[in-house]
C-alpha cells in the first residue's frame, strides 16, 4: 500500500470516483471479460464433475429427444401416406333398377371428366361371380333367388387430386338420381391424417410438459449448485459483487446444461433413426416401396439446440431468482 492510499478523502467513497477510475470503456471491457470467464469457469465446473453433469445432461436430452423422435416418426408416416395415396378410386354403386345401357352411358360421361382417369362397369352378375370366387360363400350365394348386388362403376381417378377434390367429386356423384352410394377407398388415408393431426397435437402437449420438466431439472441442479457455493456468494457480496455478477456463472451453467443436453438429444434421435432405418427399409421393400426414413433437418437441429439452451438459461434464471436473493451477508 503506497502513496495512492493517502488520497483517501471523505468523498473518495462516492460512486463518481470509482467511475472516473474505470472509464465507461473499461467497464464495458470488464463486463465482457466477466461474461467470458463465467462461461468458461462454469463449463470447467461441469467438466470437473463429468458423471453428475452427464446425468443432468442425459435427463435433459431424453426429455428433448422423446418429442423429437415422435415428431420425426409422424412426419415419416405422413410422408408414407402421401406416397401411398397413389391412384385414389371411387366405387359408384347404382340403383338396382339401372339397366346396363344406362350405366354404360353414365360411365362414358364420367370418363370425360378431368379428374377421372378411367372406369369400368361391373354388372351385378359379374360382381356376384367375383364375390363367389373370393369369399368362399359360393354355396350360400348360389342358393339366393335374386342377385342382391347392385350394378357398380369402378372409377380410377387421376393422381394429383387432393382429398378435398376427391370429396367434392364424391358429393357430385352422390347427387345423381342413378347413384345409390359412392364409396371412396381413401377413407383410411383420411383417418390416417386425422390420427396424425391428433399425434401432432399430443406431441406439442408432450413437448410443453417435457420443457417444463427440463426447466425444473436445470432449476433444481442450479439450486444445489447455489447451496454448494453459498460461502463464495456471501464473500462475493461482502466484497461488493453486484447481484448480476453473482448470478452470471449460474446462468451460464444453466445454458451449458441446456446446450449439452440438446446436443445429446440430437445424438439420441439420430441413434434411434439409425436403429430404425434397417427395419423400415425392409418393410418398405416388402411393399415394393423405395421409402427412405427422413432424418432431422439442419433447421430442426439448430432450433432444438437454441430451444434447449434457452430452456437451460431460463431454468437457471428461475432458480437464481428464487434462491440467490435469500443469500445476503449478515
Amino acid at each position: 500500500m503506497s502513496q495512492e492510499s493517502q488520497k483517501a478523502l471523505p468523498d473518495a467513497l462516492s460512486r463518481g470516483a470509482s467511475l472516473k477510475q474505470l472509464s465507461l470503456l473499461n467497464l464495458w471491457r470488464s463486463y465482457c471479460r466477466h461474461h467470458v470467464s463465467s462461461a468458461r469457469d462454469s463449463l470447467n465446473r461441469l467438466l470437473r464433475q463429468p458423471l453428475s453433469s452427464l446425468m443432468t445432461c442425459l435427463v435433459v436430452a431424453i426429455a428433448l429427444a422423446l418429442p423429437q423422435v415422435l415428431s420425426v416418426a409422424v412426419s415419416n408416416i405422413d410422408q408414407l401416406g402421401q406416397s401411398w395415396q397413389g391412384r385414389p378410386s371411387l366405387s359408384v354403386y347404382l340403383h338396382h333398377n339401372v339397366k346396363q345401357p344406362v350405366a354404360e352411358k353414365l360411365l362414358i360421361e364420367l370418363e370425360q371428366q378431368e379428374s377421372v382417369a378411367e372406369g369400368i362397369y361391373i354388372s351385378p352378375s359379374e360382381a356376384l361371380q367375383e364375390f363367389e370366387a373370393h369369399s368362399g360363400f359360393a354355396d350360400v350365394l348360389g342358393q339366393l333367388e335374386r342377385n342382391p348386388l347392385p350394378p357398380l362403376l369402378q372409377l380410377s381417378l387421376v393422381e394429383q387430386l387432393s382429398l378435398e377434390q376427391v370429396q367434392s367429386l364424391q358429393a357430385n356423384l352422390q347427387a345423381r338420381p342413378e347413384v345409390e352410394q359412392v364409396d371412396v377407398d381413401l377413407q383410411w388415408l383420411q383417418r390416417l391424417q386425422q390420427i396424425l393431426a391428433l399425434g401432432r397435437t399430443l406431441i406439442w402437449l408432450l413437448s410443453g410438459l417435457l420443457a417444463l420438466g427440463v426447466l425444473l431439472i436445470v432449476g433444481n441442479t442450479i439450486r444445489l449448485a447455489i447451496a454448494a457455493r453459498k460461502d463464495e456468494i456471501l464473500v462475493t457480496k461482502t466484497l461488493g459483487g453486484t447481484n448480476a455478477f453473482v448470478r452470471r456463472p449460474f446462468l451460464y451453467t444453466g445454458l451449458w446444461y441446456g446446450l449439452l443436453g440438446g446436443a445429446l438429444a440430437l445424438l439420441l434421435t439420430e441413434l434411434c433413426l439409425f436403429a430404425l432405418a434397417g427395419p423400415v427399409a425392409k418393410l418398405a421393400g416388402s411393399y415394393g416401396s423405395d421409402f427412405l426414413l427422413m432424418g432431422i433437418s439442419w433447421f430442426d437441429a439448430g432450433f432444438l439446440l437454441l430451444a434447449s439452451s434457452v430452456l437451460g438459461w431460463l431454468g437457471a434464471a428461475l432458480a437464481v431468482g428464487r434462491h440467490l436473493a435469500a443469500i445476503e451477508p449478515k
Partner: peptide
C-alpha cells in the same frame, strides 16, 4: 450497496477465505 462495499476493506475474525 455493492459500490459502497468496494470502497471498504473488511477483515473478519474467521477470515472468510475460500
Amino acid at each position: 450497496i455493492p459500490f459502497l462495499r468496494r470502497q471498504i476493506g473488511v477483515v473478519f475474525q474467521n477470515h472468510q477465505l475460500l
